[in-house]
Simulated scan of single mutants.
Amino acid sequence: MATATATLAPVTPSQKDADAGGAPSGRRHAKGRAARGTAATGRPTGDGAPAKTRDAFFDNAKYLAIVLVAMGHAWEPLRDGSRSAAALYITVYAFHMPAFIIISGYFSRSFDMRKDRLQRLITGVAVPYVLFEVAYTFFKRWADDDPGYPITLLQPWYLTWFLIALFIWRLTTPLWKIVRWPLPLALTIAVLAAVSPEIGDDLNLQRVLQFLPFFVVGLTLRPEHFQLVRRRAVRIAALPVVAGALVFAYWAAPRMNAAWFYHRDSAQELGAPWWSGVVMTLAMFGCSLVLVACFFAWVPGRRTWFTALGAGTLYGYLLHGFLAKGSRFWHWYDNDWLHTPWGQVLLTLIAGTLVTLLCTPPVQRIFRFAMEPKMTWAFKPDAVGTARQRR
């Protein structure tokens, strides 16, 4: 995979006010260019300041992370019959969502309770959560022949947990910005959650709390931290680290409960003693950070053919869930050829191709009504902005 040697570009305001995938929609981006100048060319904006371009590194990272998410879901039913598939699954699950969450935290650094940012949180996270939770429920009723499956917004089904988690994390961002030791506090909360089975399943709070440290890590990062992991020495060191992780995963596959990587249950619910929740939470946090650093080290920093797809990763994430679950409901994995080495390779390529297509601009235009609704009718007009326009 090609890498970039250039330093990180400045983080743009549009990237700071990011959606769940860490990037604004094409509609908002285009609207911003029309109002402020042509950001892509770097020409001065209307207020005299030079326009800033999006940083290709983060769009590349989001796209590659969402491809790994889709591939991981494709490998899941293959684990019982293939130790290699199980090893790949464990390795990818150790860092793909942490990477995505760290990026989301990084682009949440400027979040506050300002009216426009709260509106974007509602329209870009809360509304898609409600719509897709309902859509997934009806899909399960139809595809799984389960007409009695209830609609509930308190217990996220399948992929929608990330949206409710991001909603909660972002609302708490101002708190993490004022505490003295945010990461130790977040780790303490994650450890306590891992040994507290009484938390229950409402709002998938186990995941919200156990993944919280990664979001807080993102909040504390600065551009220079990403420059550190993209140095040549780190890229070279990342190769044996990932190779070692794969070897360890191959050894651990038949010995370890992969549910630890989901962070959705306490240690007791996984049949382990309570103290193992403390050990596993801290150990997996450290391992995940190392693998995330290796992942970032090899993410290209220049514009590539998939850079533009980084703005559509939330589309790919939510939409590919219908195919991932449908493949189980319709018993696609009963085909023997899928369990052969060549079948597994082909399935991996298909998963990567499908999620790539779901991130493309045409798909974004079709589903923008659900992912990024304007909903101006739902909010009170901004009195300050209106007065400024009148002047």
Score class of each variant (00 low, 15 high):
376 T>P: 00
203 L>N: 06
345 V>F: 15
224 E>A: 14
365 R>D: 14
203 L>G: 05
167 F>E: 02
294 C>T: 03
223 P>D: 04
165 A>Y: 01
49 A>D: 10
328 R>P: 02
180 R>T: 12
327 S>R: 10
279 V>F: 14
122 I>R: 01
290 V>T: 15
268 Q>D: 12
6 A>N: 09
252 A>Y: 04
67 V>P: 12
280 M>Y: 09
47 D>I: 09
126 A>L: 15
302 R>K: 14
374 K>V: 12
84 S>A: 15
192 L>W: 13
342 W>F: 13
138 F>H: 14
218 G>W: 11
312 G>F: 07
214 F>A: 03
120 R>W: 07
36 R>E: 05
390 R>C: 04
278 V>T: 15
67 V>R: 00
276 S>F: 11
259 A>I: 07
282 L>Y: 11
243 A>M: 07
122 I>K: 01
78 L>V: 06
336 D>Q: 04
164 I>A: 09
319 L>T: 02
14 S>C: 09
322 F>H: 01
343 G>V: 06
360 T>Q: 10
218 G>K: 06
176 W>N: 03
276 S>Q: 15
231 R>H: 12
7 T>A: 02
102 I>M: 06
193 A>S: 15
345 V>G: 11
112 D>Q: 07
271 G>C: 09
142 W>T: 09
64 L>H: 12
6 A>Q: 10
226 F>H: 06
245 A>S: 13
286 G>I: 09
341 P>R: 01
298 W>C: 11
37 G>L: 05
289 L>W: 10
334 D>T: 08
327 S>T: 13
182 P>Y: 11
302 R>V: 11
49 A>M: 04
112 D>K: 05
52 K>H: 03
211 F>P: 03
386 T>S: 12
334 D>M: 01
9 A>S: 10
200 G>Y: 15
313 T>I: 02
254 P>G: 08
236 I>S: 09
292 V>K: 07
124 G>F: 06
139 F>L: 08
266 S>Y: 04
56 A>W: 00
228 L>G: 02
311 A>R: 13
177 K>T: 14
240 P>M: 03
325 K>M: 13
269 E>W: 02
62 K>W: 00
